[in-house]
């Protein structure tokens, strides 16, 4: 078991911040708050610089200036985008509505047929499975169809959950619970992975214990 301490100062800055954040487990403290403020500021600075170089210059200014005759119309959406800022000025808030109206209106119209296709028709198609009369057919296709139908019935609000209808809705809730159980298990796994990631960082990058 050998350690090989990192000579990169950045790694140690990161280790410092990592430990600062973990100090929160003991209780909320200025060190944690400091780390939090730094991450907010650096994150914002990062986003601003990237936005400036890649979006404003790369995606708007460069095409506009190199090919002005065919792209000059880009000035209109640019003005609309700028109008959004009037949201913060109560007297002129209404100006921002034009940009919002354009994006929300077009976005909704855009989404409508596509969501029907991908979110409804295709999901229905994928559930229209043939039922095979075998153990495999029961365990998969049959259970899926029963689960989807009973789940839909559980979320049906025009009829009270009584009698046969209530029993089917009850089957639905069991399916939902098992589904949530799967999500639960996976979420636990994800959160632990993040912690493992930090442990790996300290063990490998900072202390040089692991050689991968």
């Amino acid at each position: 078991m050998t350690f090989n301490l990192s000579s990169n100062i950045w790694v140690w800055i990161a280790v410092f911040f990592t430990l600062s954040v973990y100090s929160f487990l003991w209780k909320d403290n200025p060190l944690f708050k400091f780390a939090e403020s730094v991450t907010v500021g650096v994150g914002m600075g990062y986003a601003m610089v990237q936005w400036f170089t890649l979006s404003l210059v790369g995606r708007f200014w460069t095409p506009l200036t190199t090919d002005f005759s065919s792209r000059f119309h880009l000035i209109i959406p640019a003005i609309m985008g700028l109008m959004l800022i009037t949201r913060l000025i109560p007297r002129f808030t209404w100006l921002s509505r034009y940009a919002l109206a354009f994006t929300m209106g077009a976005g909704s119209g855009f989404a409508l047929p596509r969501v029907i296709q991908a979110g409804v028709l295709q999901q229905l198609y994928a559930t229209m499975l043939p039922i095979e009369f075998s153990l495999h057919g029961f365990l998969y296709n049959f259970i899926i169809i029963v689960g989807v139908l009973s789940g839909l019935i559980y979320f049906f609000f025009s009829k009270e959950h009584k009698g046969w209808f209530g029993s089917i809705a009850n089957v639905g809730i069991w399916f939902l619970m098992v589904g949530f159980g799967a999500t639960f298990g996976y979420t636990v796994m994800a959160r632990l992975s993040l912690f493992i990631g930090r442990v790996l960082f300290v063990l490998r990058d900072a202390l040089g214990f692991l050689k991968i």
Binding site: A118, Q122, Q123, Y125, A126, G179, A182, T183, G185, Y186, T187, M189, A190, S193
Partner: peptide, 22 residues
């Protein structure tokens, strides 16, 4: 991994060729 359980319907519907979860 948090998203993984939710992605299986898309896999079954053939919209994804595969999933790596977490």
């Amino acid at each position: 991994a948090v998203m993984a359980a939710d992605a299986y319907p898309a896999l079954q519907a053939g919209q994804l060729i595969g999933i790596m979860g977490g």
